[in-house]
């Protein structure tokens, strides 16, 4: 069973975020009987023997770096990065399908690492570079991974496609010349219902051959 506070199930090496309040910390906090100071910000609480900042309840100001732009919003601490992207910033490329880290359709990059944005709290994604599928096209030209998806008919209904594009890009950045075994392993975190895997496999082969 995966750790609930690991935002990055595809990369077991990734360290959980220690700067903000992780989902697990939040659970610990809410499960403890704590004394909150009556006045003054930020609110602090003792949790697991440490002083931690308490955000919310209610909306708190947040600031993000999304596709190279600084964006601000007032959000409840319980809002996921996925919902913030979709509902606040209308970046709807990342899709909400399972909403619990099982299907990969919400994949975005956080400091260049692929994450399931449904399983990252928005508040945790502050001070990190957030990259979504919308940023991959440059000067009206498709990214080589995107072009390879077009060439190899790697989308049908297309609902899983943006998540797959981001996952494939991140995968190919790390494995420019993947073996079939690498592909099977590295892209098993995204699911498709129409059955486009054959095209996706060919698309990856095309990029690996030509180079991204």
């Amino acid at each position: 069973m995966r750790d609930d506070d690991d935002p990055n199930p595809k990369d077991p090496e990734a360290k959980p975020d220690v700067s903000g309040v992780s989902r697990r910390d939040f659970l610990k906090i809410s499960g403890l009987s704590i004394t909150l100071p009556l006045v003054g910000e930020p609110k602090m609480a003792m949790a697991a023997g440490q002083q931690v900042v308490v955000h919310g309840p209610g909306k708190v100001p947040m600031e993000f770096s999304i596709n190279g732009r600084r964006l601000k919003a007032d959000l409840e601490p319980r809002v996921t990065l996925l919902d913030a992207l979709r509902d606040q910033f209308e970046l709807t490329g990342a899709k909400r399908v399972c909403d619990r880290g099982e299907c990969g359709t919400c994949t975005v990059l956080l400091d260049n690492k692929p994450v399931y944005s449904c399983s990252v709290l928005a508040i945790e994604a502050q001070r990190k570079a957030i990259t979504t599928v919308e940023s991959l096209m440059q000067d009206g030209k498709l990214h080589p991974v995107q072009q390879a998806f077009v060439d190899n008919d790697a989308s049908q209904c297309g609902f899983c496609t943006p998540g797959f594009i981001v996952a494939c890009k991140a995968f190919l950045d790390r494995h420019p010349h993947p073996t079939p075994e690498d592909i099977r392993h590295g892209l098993s975190g995204n699911l498709c219902r129409c059955g486009t895997y054959n095209g996706i496999r060919k698309a990856i082969a095309q990029v690996a051959q030509k180079g991204a």
Binding site: T92, E134, Q146, F149, V150, D151, D153, S155, G158
Partner: peptide, 21 residues
């Protein structure tokens, strides 16, 4: 023939009902 709506789908621009705001 490559499907005409692929570019919209691969770039995240294709709007589904779920994306309508």
């Amino acid at each position: 023939i490559s499907r005409v709506d692929s570019p919209a789908k691969v770039s995240g621009q294709a709007k589904y009902t779920y994306d309508v705001h």
